[in-house]
Amino acid sequence: MEEASETTKFDHRLLEYEKRGTLPPTNRNHNVPDFLVSICIPTCDRPRMLDAALISCFRQPLLPAEILIGDDSQDRKSAAIVNGFAQQTNVDIKYWKHSERIGQAANLNWLIDNANSQYLIFLHDDDRLCAGALKILYEAWLRYPGAQCFYGKQYLTDYIGNILPDRTEGWNHRYFRTREFAGIQRSNLSAALSQQIPNNGFLIENELARKTRYRSETEIGHAIDADFGIRLALAAGPHTFVYVDSFVSEYRLNPDSISQSTTLNRREDVLYEYIEKLKIPADDEQARIGFLERIAAAAALDAARAGRRRSAIRIIFSTYYKETLLSRWTLYRLLCVVSPAIGERVKHLLTQINPDLRSDRERQWRRFGNGS
């Protein structure tokens, strides 16, 4: 993977900048007046990772017009990081320290409401933009006038930022981010239901983002990124989603993140039922089936943990649930329907017998799958 080697080279240079306490040199002449972008970063108690995310924004040959940061942290460490950057760059940095934690969805909506540029890029505080991300997205914007959403491939990295080549390849293949899908998508909705749109690093019209907005965790569970992408597709004009077959962002497998948590109930059953009931064109039905099949196992478990027994059983015995009904993991979920506490005890016993089972099967399916 050629891009990985280029990123590694850059990271060595980045370490040198960090040792000297300075940013890579920036040149405002590289900015394009008619292509102004706001990078929106919600953050919460990750100052070191926020630092890396911000450095990735400033290493762009084409700089953003502004960077907006909404801080849900309990302390002022992230504020100190932001202040250090503000003294070294001529990019406009806007920072808000929320007096009380407002949650990811509300934080993102706050940033949308306060962004001034025509286009937005969302970046999680533990992820990074690739070195040429803005330039890649700008060139796609030039090539496809009238399009409203642009996105590319993601690197998967481990906790400290090392690229995982095999998982990266399977990840992008699984979500239809390969060469044959490059360009304008046949259907915005099929692209979104296929989760071709990554969870961050995509370029979106500000007006469309404001019209769509993120729904709260109480409305749709913690899978707010997938829900936002699907509703963007419904709100956008036809044939306005563009996939670029280049690496744009890095997605860190952070054990502290919502997606990697094995204890948090993400309430994917809420998202499952929303997609199940959504009225869509017949041409998008296959994409809906694929989406429901991807999250059915996790949705069944989340419903069971939430005490929604009928919903959990209905999902397990639906055509979308692809786990073998006689498997140990289906047994585990059925036990969770009866009692989540009993289910967890059985799971603990199974992992004592075979440590390889320690990570829940549906987590592996949802995150990596088999690349097909």
Results as ranks from 00 to 15, higher is better:
residue 133 A to S: 13
residue 46 R to I: 05
residue 358 R to W: 04
residue 43 T to Q: 01
residue 4 A to G: 06
residue 370 N to W: 10
residue 93 I to M: 07
residue 58 F to G: 02
residue 276 E to C: 08
residue 196 Q to D: 06
residue 84 G to W: 15
residue 109 N to F: 07
residue 194 S to H: 14
residue 19 K to Q: 07
residue 261 S to K: 00
residue 302 D to R: 04
residue 248 V to K: 08
residue 176 F to N: 11
residue 69 I to K: 01
residue 249 S to Y: 09
residue 282 A to Q: 13
residue 355 P to S: 09
residue 62 L to Q: 03
residue 369 G to D: 11
residue 300 A to C: 07
residue 135 K to P: 04
residue 127 D to M: 07
residue 182 A to Y: 06
residue 241 F to H: 11
residue 162 N to L: 06
residue 30 H to N: 14
residue 346 V to N: 00
residue 227 D to K: 06
residue 170 G to M: 14
residue 272 Y to R: 03
residue 72 D to Y: 00
residue 131 A to Y: 12
residue 242 V to C: 09
residue 351 T to I: 11
residue 113 D to H: 12
residue 303 A to C: 04
residue 65 A to V: 01
residue 268 E to S: 08
residue 79 A to K: 13
residue 295 I to L: 07
residue 6 E to N: 14
residue 316 I to Y: 01
residue 54 L to H: 04
residue 217 E to V: 15
residue 200 N to A: 15
residue 115 A to P: 03
residue 281 P to W: 11
residue 362 E to N: 11
residue 189 L to F: 05
residue 56 S to P: 04
residue 3 E to M: 12
residue 35 F to M: 02
residue 98 H to R: 07
residue 329 W to M: 12
residue 158 D to C: 10
residue 294 R to G: 00
residue 191 A to D: 08
residue 158 D to K: 08
residue 30 H to G: 15
residue 274 Y to T: 14
residue 42 P to H: 11
residue 314 R to H: 11
residue 140 A to F: 05
residue 372 S to F: 13
residue 294 R to P: 02
residue 340 P to G: 07
residue 76 R to C: 01
residue 111 L to Q: 08
residue 283 D to W: 09
residue 367 R to V: 11
residue 125 D to V: 04
residue 356 D to F: 14
residue 64 P to T: 10
residue 29 N to Y: 10
residue 333 R to D: 01
residue 176 F to P: 03
residue 244 V to T: 09
residue 95 Y to S: 06
residue 191 A to W: 05
residue 5 S to M: 15
residue 365 W to E: 09
residue 234 L to A: 11
residue 187 S to L: 04
residue 296 A to M: 06
residue 301 L to I: 01
residue 297 A to H: 02
residue 126 D to W: 07
residue 191 A to N: 03
residue 53 A to R: 03
residue 55 I to R: 14
residue 191 A to Q: 04
residue 164 L to I: 14
residue 180 E to D: 14
residue 151 Y to D: 00
residue 216 S to C: 08
residue 161 G to L: 08
residue 287 A to P: 03
residue 334 L to D: 03
residue 78 S to A: 15
residue 343 G to Y: 04
residue 132 G to Y: 13
residue 350 L to I: 13
residue 287 A to C: 05
residue 145 P to K: 12
residue 40 C to H: 06
residue 283 D to S: 15
residue 7 T to K: 13
residue 187 S to G: 04
residue 84 G to Q: 12
residue 119 Y to H: 10
residue 264 L to H: 03
residue 238 P to W: 09
residue 320 Y to P: 02
residue 86 A to G: 08
residue 77 K to W: 00
residue 285 E to R: 12
residue 277 K to F: 02
residue 58 F to W: 05
residue 84 G to K: 12
residue 46 R to T: 09
residue 54 L to E: 02
residue 31 N to H: 09
residue 54 L to C: 03
